[in-house]
Design a protein around this nucleic acid. Structure first.
Lengths: 240, 240
DNA sequence: TTAGTTTATTGGAACGTACCAATTTTTTAA
DNA sequence: TTAAAAAATTGGTACGTTCCAATAAACTAA
């Protein structure tokens, strides 16, 4: 195990919330929690802080800590517990496993945009990889990814068909966990319509992302064009 | 001032980063920062933690703290500093002030969906407010909002035309800062096309949101249909 | 020179303390 | 009975300490 103290507390509290052990919709105060679980108030604060930023609870100085009634009650449209990128919901895809089809794979010079987004010089060549992603027979996304050669010198078509992220983690001990994402919509192009089985009136949801290595190196720029029924992005926001 | 210590550090570091005072793209280690600014390491950690979750820096145990090269480079292209809901970019709207047109305003019984989303009983009536939002003459969004009467008993058409959020903050000392958001796209309906000046092939971006009061009470459910050119959602994500 | 080992560096987790600020509850006074 | 004042409650900020774990740097031996 060796699970972190504050994470233990989080799961314990989640369980108790779900089990309806707090009928007044309030958690005990931090000092009490600290005592009952025999951990420091600092650890309690860390746990509650995380839960608050996930939208599970609300803290109010002087008043106490309140449970989000929607977390407990009915799982609404909103998938709770933090941010949730959803290639989902479109329809059931239970049991259907994701497939990848590589549409093209080449090496190109980076455009100016790309140079900016991946922090490259004009002579830092990049792989351009176009993939179609499907659930079984159902295509749901066209992904165009750009990866600098200098970061992954030996990228083969075989690796491309699998997951590059796994490749990196295994072969170079570099995890990809951070990304900067931009989400918007556009009318579908003829290419979109052909590949994603869309009518001309049906749009694509676009998710542009820059993925970073642990040390902050921009590692991939990727533009993902989704069949609009297969894209939904859920998040909990705290404005200022 | 009385500005918080860790926020002071954040702005100082941002300034230094922007001024290119860290040519090796690394920040000093936490213990040094603690010394040079004469604050505790805990406060340093809090500042750096926030900056990391905003995507400005990357921390790596054993190695140090790295600056996101994209933060330095083109801050303009990158709407950085964390999550950023953007009713923006579509086109310049500098100087153009946002306008509101109330399309309808009525009291209705809540649908089952709404009962779930706002945590209501079937007899908790709600205001239904449909607004068209514009920049000067340019409509960019249709907003359909639902607010329980029991939370805002005396909502008048006058208040509706202004900002309900301000009304709440002033009159009831309740701030609205937390929300749960879901983003997706759909083909435009005829109504969308008429109101937002869209062609039939052009879509809307939809942002459904539940807004909460400070104490966690769901306060408004709102469905916002954007002209696709006027909606862009930027965020920085940390997976796992 | 190289490969393996040891040491130093650096961020992470957890504990605990002191004091502050917003809110609620209780008490007091008119 | 009511309104103002005081006290208690509750989360927030900040400091500081101890130990740990991942990584990098230095060292040692073949």
């Amino acid at each position: 195990m060796a699970e972190l103290i504050y994470k233990q507390l989080i799961s314990k509290l989640k369980k108790r919330i779900t089990a309806n052990e707090f009928p007044d919709m309030k958690l005990p105060d931090e000092r009490s929690l600290s005592e009952t679980y025999e951990i420091s108030r600092s650890s309690v604060k860390r746990a509650l802080g995380q839960m608050a930023s996930d939208g599970i609870i609300f803290k109010k100085r002087g008043s106490g800590t309140f449970i989000n009634p929607l977390y407990l009650k009915n799982k609404t449209v909103f998938n709770y517990a933090g941010t949730n990128l959803g290639v989902t919901d479109g329809f059931e895809m239970n049991g259907k496993s994701p497939k990848v089809k590589v549409l093209s794979f080449e090496v190109i010079a980076p455009s100016e945009d790309l140079q900016r987004n991946l922090f490259l010089n004009a002579d830092d060549f990049v792989y351009k990889i176009v993939r179609l992603r499907l659930f079984e027979k159902t295509p749901f996304m066209i992904e165009t990814g750009y990866i600098p050669i200098k970061i992954v010198p030996n990228l083969s078509r075989v690796i491309v068909k699998g997951s590059i992220f796994n490749y990196l983690e295994d072969a170079q001990n570099q995890a990809v966990t951070k990304s900067s994402i931009s989400i918007y919509a556009e009318p579908s192009t003829e290419n979109d319509q052909a590949l994603l089985d869309l009518k001309s009136t049906e749009p694509v949801s676009i998710m542009d992302g820059i993925f970073f290595l642990d040390d902050g190196t921009p590692f991939e720029y990727s533009s993902m064009r989704f069949h609009y029924k297969f894209s939904k992005f859920n998040t909990f926001m705290s404005v200022k």
